[in-house]
């Protein structure tokens, strides 16, 4: 029978589709590791509230927990780019960066300060965008609108664009859209948003989700629990994470596709920001990223690594258009300015 037994939970409640990523890794890991380890997985909220899993894993009250790193950005802003970017990375960029351009090591450095090892095991590409009962067809329509949006960089960009960031408890978003407390709100990807019932209350949906161009999920593991494992078992957990990473990308794209069709069938009207609008968002984002990065050294270090990757990869990527994998973009946040803040 198993030598080690872990209790693991996640930030997601049972019915939020994102919990499938955690489950996929747990199932795979339990199959691979054999007798040395048994991971007992429990849905978010059943052991510890979702907002407290970081602290509970850090202290070893539980051995591991699935998460989205952005929730911990109050502890260090560096967690924010480890979780998502405003108008910068897409899903493949995260995959490239984590596996070949030094991303993985940065996760260890940031989480390591809190006595944890981190295995990124989920990537979802672009989020839905804004859904609500007020039509937003262009940036001009965003002026004076109240938008439920999470994140500091995201709020800063929205403010520059003339909108206002509204903070709401997750459970209140649905009703806030229905009653018009907010003009629009963002929550997750189309598949997840549809399951949460947003098609019942939203009449309009504006894409793309520039506020969260792609997202990363993973598992925090208490370092003492991790060190108690053999090298071989640790390796197997990493293999399970890599496999889940690839699986999650296409799983979530499939879910987003099906979700989008359901939104269309429900009669939700979809608007897309124009290229000119997106270019303006990019200009503002680049400024906001530099400003945020310079407020914290580790934050700057992560962004420096990410933008360096974008510049490096561009050498080959741009030659492969139209068969390229990631964003072809030259208008990036200034690497020089961020370097000055390191």
């Amino acid at each position: 029978h198993a030598k080690e037994s872990w209790t693991m939970t996640t930030t997601w409640p049972d019915n939020l589709a994102l919990i499938e990523i955690d489950r996929h890794w747990v199932d795979l890991a339990n199959k691979l590791v054999g007798d040395e380890l048994k991971i007992n997985f429990r849905a978010g909220g059943t052991l510890v509230p979702g907002t407290e899993v970081f602290d509970a894993t850090q202290t070893g009250s539980i051995e591991a927990s699935g998460d989205w790193p952005g929730y911990w950005a109050g502890r260090s802003p560096a967690f924010s780019p480890l979780a998502t970017t405003t108008s910068l990375f897409n899903g493949v960029d995260y995959l490239n960066w984590i596996q070949q351009w030094g991303g993985f090591e940065l996760y260890q450095e940031v989480y390591g300060k809190y006595n944890m090892v981190y295995l990124p095991y989920g990537i979802t590409n672009n989020e839905s965008g804004f859904m609500g009962r007020t039509p937003i067809k262009s940036l001009a329509d965003l002026d004076g609108k109240r938008i439920r949006l999470s994140g500091r960089d995201q709020g800063r960009v929205l403010e520059e664009l003339g909108g206002s960031q509204v903070t709401l408890a997750g459970g209140e978003i649905y009703q806030a859209i229905e009653r018009g407390v907010i003009d629009a709100g963002e929550f997750s990807t189309p598949g997840v948003d549809y399951e949460a019932g947003f098609a019942e209350v939203a009449e309009y949906w504006t894409t793309p989700g520039w506020h969260q161009s792609a997202s990363v999920f993973g598992v925090m593991i208490n370092k003492d629990a991790w060190n108690a494992l053999s090298k071989e078992t640790q390796e197997k957990l990493k293999i399970a994470a890599d496999a889940t990473l690839a699986w999650s990308l296409s799983w979530s794209e499939r879910g987003s596709t099906e979700g989008t069709i359901k939104f269309q069938e429900a009669g939700v009207q979809i608007n897309q920001f124009s290229e000119a609008d997106l270019a303006r968002i990019q200009d503002i984002t680049n400024e906001v990223i530099v400003r945020g990065a310079c407020e914290d050294k580790m934050h700057a270090k992560v962004y420096h690594s990410m933008i360096s990757y974008m510049e490096h990869y561009a050498n080959w990527r741009d030659l492969t258009v139209p068969f390229n994998m990631s964003r072809t973009i030259d208008n990036l946040p200034s690497l020089k300015k961020i370097e000055a803040c390191l």
Binding site: D55, Q58, G74, R75, S80, G151, R152
Partner: peptide, 12 residues
Amino acid sequence: RSFSRGETTYGM
């Protein structure tokens, strides 16, 4: 744990 890291909210 919170004080030693100067934990803050993550809003604007």
